[in-house]
Design a binder for these strands. Sequence first.
DNA 1: AAAAAAC
Length: 485
Amino acid sequence: MNFSDLGLSEKVLEAVTASGYTQPTPIQAEAIPHALARRDVLGIAQTGTGKTAAFTLPMLTLLEQGRARARMPRTLILEPTRELAAQVEESFTKYGANQRLNVALLIGGVSFGDQDAKITRGVDVLIATPGRLLDHFERGKLLLTGIEILVIDEADRMLDMGFIPDIERICRMVPFTRQTLFFSATMPPEIQRLTETFLHNPAKVEVARQASTATTITQRLVGAGAEPHEKREALRNLIRQQPEFKNAIIFCNRKRDVQTVYRSLQRHGFNVAALHGDLDQRARMAALDSFRNGSTQLLVASDVAARGLDIPDVSHVFNYDVPHHAEDYVHRIGRTGRAGKKGVAITVVTSDDKKSLAAIEQMIGASIEWQGELPPQGEGDGERRRRAGGRRGGRDGGRGRSHDGQAETRRSETESPSPARAAGSRDRQQSHERRDRGPRPAAGEAPRPERQARAPQRRPEPEEPPVIGLGDHVPSFLLRSVKRT
DNA sequence: AAAAAAC
């Protein structure tokens, strides 16, 4: 299958070729002919599957006929976040290079003036987040009665974000006769209802199941103390330990933690940027740009960055927090291991995260490899080392932390051996054995018995201090076989 | 337990 077999126009094909693409992805191969035939399309696909081009390319072809009129855009694309909207705009710029089309981006956080001016001149492609679109509409500067094609992207995310009433409103404002291209990674009942209401006999195009995580991603769990400073220190060690590190996105659950972790990494000399929704638009764009062009290696982000953002070549994803919703986990780790590349996703787990972790493992249909405890240690500045050494003899202020063990595994590669660490060698071997066992079973395969079998050897000896948290102790939920859906 | 999106 080649792009030239899909019925796209010469101009669009030339732009696609110029970008270096010859073969369409499955969603593109399936959706483009339907879209060109003016059919409604229901696309069930995640980002990273080539979804954006699946609607951009046929739209560009269809837009070659006709001309935009003042204040009456011809097509409308709705996106849940500003970054995604900007990304779609780039796609139109790239593939529409051989056409004279007016594209406008209507997102919040920037001034109305430029947006207004563009609308007034007439736009062929309007890309918008719902809030700003409705704002323009209510000011009476925008007419939606000329819309020929409506695209609703990431519908399930719009649902999560409470946009569905806005989407329904917008759907009722555009002409009944328009063509609708509708994309969602999942099909919860509410989305199902929406498609039944607003799509007419759609061609259903489905690629890759929602909950499946790419096999190119190596997933691991590491334990850490639940105290913020312990987690931050664990994170720093984790970053330093990675053998094939290129760059990483670090996900936090809360915006203020994004800020804290960002500042902390900065103080410790890391090249880092932050991305969350409370930053002004310029800062958001700057963070994303510097990460994309490689001038920044670390991006600390909230879930604003979890879905859809196209950042090629991310070698690592670190979950500083376990996400509360299992599907967020899937989206976060999906930022790495893209386009056939290898990726590593490591989640920092504390004693507070058992429930969320169990839900995640249930959703992905497998248990995630447990790498062991990652104690805060080894800043290389003596001060920390003393603290770490001092802790060895007793407990650290009574806070939970198991005996040293698998945590030694990789640290030993980055630091010179010390007598205190030699004790970890037994566990280190075990840890390597575990890793060498290969990938976990995919969903649908039988649960693997060795999980039960190897568990006892990782329990602490009875005379050791009681374990608080997720050190070498294996919580009971990890020993249960995983329920599959 | 949160984040996101309009001013």
